[in-house]
């Protein structure tokens, strides 16, 4: 009885999650007639399938070329995430293991300084970022966006990794040093391989944030560089091309779904659980 209820709940939840994707999938194969003809889901029976929506992604009629924004998004997101994770992990290890002091400023203050960067709403940051990038001549460039994203992602990485390293017993580092490692080797050869779960979680947050960001991509780039979320929104005109919009939504969400599946695999294998002890 209980398991039946459980299955019903799971099925309902799956429908709730899958339905919008299904809707987008069918819509992406429709034409203007198919979209306005009321809700239909079965190709050939409910509507006449067409590849117009998908073609428009590659510069077809009524669409824009989405390949370049897609690549730009991939480059910007992965570079910014990678830089943030590398710097964030190093900073977090230092903050977790060593004591820093500059007058009344101590480790916890430094950590708060990092996190406090995310307290302000994005709109407050937009103008300073704009002016800074303009000064550097980096407006409308990938490098400029990467810099901005690193500034936004680094606090997340530091925060997650400090918390993670604090949970790793200091004895692990001490033991590695007793076994003959320098402090950096202890971090590199022992603590880091043990910290993959934390790094994975932090990377996931960084990638999701970077990939989904619209606001900064919109305010800091114009024509030379265009990220995927901006490109997708620019499809919207007086007559909304639902078909190409759906197709582009599907390809934009695809990497995140792949990441979700990958992380879920690791979770179920127990790789993320009980990293220490």
């Amino acid at each position: 009885m209980l398991s039946t209820l459980k299955y019903i709940a799971v099925v309902l939840w799956s429908a709730f999650v899958v339905a919008p994707l299904l809707w987008a999938l069918t819509t992406s194969f429709k034409t203007a007639n198919g979209v306005t003809g009321g809700p239909t889901y079965l190709p050939y029976i409910g509507f006449e399938p067409s590849l117009d929506g998908w073609r428009s992604l590659f510069g077809g009629a009524g669409g824009i070329d989405i390949v370049r924004p897609y690549m730009d998004s991939l480059i910007v997101t992965s570079s910014a995430s990678l830089i943030s994770i590398v710097l964030g992990t190093l900073a977090a290890y230092g903050l977790s293991r060593f004591e820093y002091r500059a007058g009344f400023v101590k480790n916890t203050d430094i950590i708060f300084f990092f996190i406090s960067q995310r307290i302000m709403p994005p709109i407050v940051l937009a103008i300073p970022f704009f002016l800074m990038l303009q000064f550097l001549g980096l407006l409308d460039t990938k490098i400029g966006l990467i810099l901005v994203y690193v500034a936004l992602l680094l606090p997340i990485a530091v925060w997650i990794m400090v918390d993670f390293f604090d949970g790793v017993p200091r004895q692990i580092d001490e033991m590695a040093m007793l076994d003959g490692c320098t402090p950096f080797e202890a971090f590199w050869r022992i603590v880091l391989p043990n910290s993959m779960p934390g790094i994975l979680v932090a990377s996931m947050f960084c990638v999701i944030f970077g990939w989904n960001d619209f606001f900064f991509a919109f305010t800091l780039t114009f024509t030379d560089t265009q990220l995927l979320p901006v490109a997708v929104v620019s499809l919207n005109s007086s007559v909304t091309p639902w078909w190409s919009l759906s197709a582009s939504a599907l390809v934009s969400v695809a990497p995140l779904i792949l990441i979700a599946i990958f992380v879920e695999r690791l979770l179920s294998r127990g790789t993320l659980a009980g990293a220490i002890r």
Binding site: E174, M175, G180, I190
Partner: peptide, 19 residues
């Protein structure tokens, strides 16, 4: 440095490299 002293130490709680 600890590494250069070449001393072996066993702690109260077991420390193993999980990976």
């Amino acid at each position: 440095r600890t590494a250069e002293r070449n001393i072996a130490q066993v702690f109260q709680f077991p420390v193993v490299y999980q990976s």
